[in-house]
Design a binder for these strands. Sequence first.
RNA 1: GUCCCGGUAGCUCAGCAGGAUAGAGCAACGGUUUCCUAAACCGUAGGUCACAGGUUCGAAUCCUGUCCGGGACGCCA
Length: 579
Amino acid sequence: MHVFADFAARLRAILVTLAAEGVIGHLPDLSRVVVEPPRDPSHGDLATNAAMALAKDLGMKPRDLAEAIAAKLGADADVASASIAGPGFVNLSLTETFWRDQLAKALRDGEDFGRPPPRSDAWVNVEYVSANPTGPMHVGHCRGAVFGDALARLLEFSGEPVTREYYINDAGAQVDVLARSVFLRYREALGEDVGEIPEGLYPGDYLKPVGEALVAAHGSALRNQPEKEWLPVVRTEAIAAMMTMIRADLAQLGIRHDVFFSERSLHGEGGAIDQAVEELTKHGLIYVGRLAPPKGQLPEDWEDREQTLFRATSFGDDVDRPLKKSDGSYTYFAADVAYFRSKFERGFNEMVFVMGADHGGYVKRLEAVGKALSGGAARVSVELCQLVRLFRNGEPFKMSKRAGEFVTLRDVVDEVGRDAVRFMMLFRSNDAVLDFDFAKVVDQSRDNPVFYVQMAYARTQSTLRKAVEAHGELPDSINFSLLSDAGELALIKKVAAWPRIVEQAAASRQPHRIAFYLHELASDLHSHWNRGKDSPDLRFIMENNPLLTHARLGLVKAVALVLASGLGILGVSAPDEMR
RNA sequence: GUCCCGGUAGCUCAGCAGGAUAGAGCAACGGUUUCCUAAACCGUAGGUCACAGGUUCGAAUCCUGUCCGGGACGCCA
């Protein structure tokens, strides 16, 4: 239990006591009561709004209630002072001893520090990337990939079991286009001059090796078959080749998935889609009808006709959604329904979808599917990532989409490195547009947050290495009461804040909070370090004072383990030294 | 026309399950330093939280409306 939760519990106990003593009439609803760090540190270490939040319910004046609470809290051995401020805040300052104990606890917990107890009630499915298997990953996929991976790591760290899933869109018309494109490369590999790649096919060179592999496997046997014969064969091999490439791209970013789920596997007579539609039909959620055309400008090819529709509007969507195309085959959405059902039947009770902002229109229909099929038993959360704008030295970096001229994810990682890509993608709220400047991201200065945070970690490691030379290994028992400098105590408090940051980041599904916290922690470390320049008696390693050195190294070690944990959640390396 | 996201310091952005005098980095300004433990440090200034209503003890945060920017809107996946 972290410091703030700890004191929330103590506060609750105090209210129980006050009720027993008759000071307050009853034990009120505490859901609006918070114990949190005050915005202004001069107000103390903790603040609670309890008196203001509960005054009305208890029929008391906030200040009177605050008096009663502050008196009890002030008697707590860990509380140095309890005061009342403003309209009824109770501000607490905790004893230095209490904070030093938190430091000792952090060191005892080691890499588990900040990790809440595992939850047995959660089983989360995080679906992310799910790029179409028609080519290499490009930068547009990057943010969602990194975000999804970091979110999965964050939830895992928070004790929620996570399965990482990739949905392969291997059933639509575009994988047929892929197959035809590859077939051309196959004929090319057989020695034919295929000339320009026709409009509408994928022109990229990356398909050449796939054509060559087909020759190696089939010789010229496919060449004279009708398309009906060769297409499924070529398609299967092409998709497999694309997925191999995509996995390699992802691996380069440090991303892996537990499950690769094939959309195609849902199709077929009596298959998962049929079953899902049948289930919806049984619940009366499917009908045949007409949709009103969208207001505003009418699509040119709009044709008013009857469709098989899912009653998404019964579950909060704006419009009912079609399940069948005009040729009678299922829509992409129909497969989505079956896919959700698969996840639900596999036991997940939270489905997280990480998507680009251009998929914002999908949120309501996915939520509707979730409600319809799980009866509210599964939570659907959609995390949208806004787009990334590329810059080079401040100049917008245009990429031409035609002729396969796009910036691949591989290009970006090759140029700036995995750590820089990942950290920068996470150093922004995911629903804000992100500017990514190649020059700034590799800059080796404190202006670059990646460098700044990694530098802080490297600094802890070099300090610990040097300390071992000077004083040998850290002993098991350390006298932390020697830590009394304001900068040291501030660092301790920052370290002690870590578990709460993890809790909030996980609850809000916002890994960027981890990145911002790490930047602050690094800043506190650097700034304390710099104080040692002017005041040598504040340096971590004190040649003539091993006991003080040990205490300070304990603090350095705690900072290091939190930095390492945090960077681990972001999937960014914690280097022992900067090169 | 409808829906989603954003609008906070000159710039880039945090903060938003309601809390006190709204924060950080950069830029600006002023000073210190050229040392060293790892790529200088300290300080100052800078705000109608887009706008208007509402909810309440209290709103950047929640609700309604408006404006601006971005995205999306049956049979593509």
